[in-house]
């Protein structure tokens, strides 16, 4: 089937098997391997991407269901060499160790910060309930998201 969509600002048109999952399209056809597969059952969130701005687990939808949408993956977060505030936050606050869950965490956090520019620790922890991290114990992830939220509020105010 013909699939038309935009990934990270690039318009694409590909013939895909109707049964292909979106995550496999992103990884194997669009060659964006920053989006990871961790569980195939939509629990771990490693595959999270933004579809039209909302965080979606790309392992549980078909590629063809994303027809006509705008997708952002981790590769689309930085502007050239300038990191997204969330990427900066994860780096500054040591919000990652093995890094496997990180892209999904960042995409989920982007969705949260678009809805809530100043979340509390409890709100952040709640928002991350669909993303598992096995390395960090989450505390530095919470701090990373708080760092980004503060930075994004400041730059908006400026």
């Amino acid at each position: 089937m013909l699939l038309n969509l935009t990934i990270n600002g690039e318009q694409r048109s590909d013939n895909v098997d109707p049964r292909m999952l979106l995550v496999h399209y992103i990884r194997d056809i669009a060659n964006l391997t920053g989006t990871h597969v961790g569980c195939e059952t939509s629990i771990c969130g490693a595959c999270t991407v933004l579809i039209n701005g909302s965080a979606v687990k790309s392992c549980t939808i078909l590629a063809v269901q994303a027809d006509g949408t705008k997708i952002t993956t981790i590769e689309g977060m930085a502007e050239g060499d300038r990191l997204h505030p969330l990427q900066e936050g994860f780096w500054e606050e040591h919000g990652l160790q093995c890094g496997y869950c990180t892209p999904g965490m960042i995409m989920t956090a982007a969705d949260l910060l678009a809805r809530n520019s100043n979340p509390t620790e409890a709100e952040i922890r709640e928002a991350l309930e669909g993303n598992l991290c096995r390395c960090t114990g989450y505390q530095h992830i919470v701090k990373a998201i708080q760092f980004a939220a503060a930075k994004m509020r400041t730059s908006k105010a400026a």
Partner: peptide
Amino acid sequence: IKRREDPRLITGTGQYVDD
């Protein structure tokens, strides 16, 4: 010190086996 591993991991450019 901020980790030197991180730039590739926060931009989705690290290479795991599946990559």
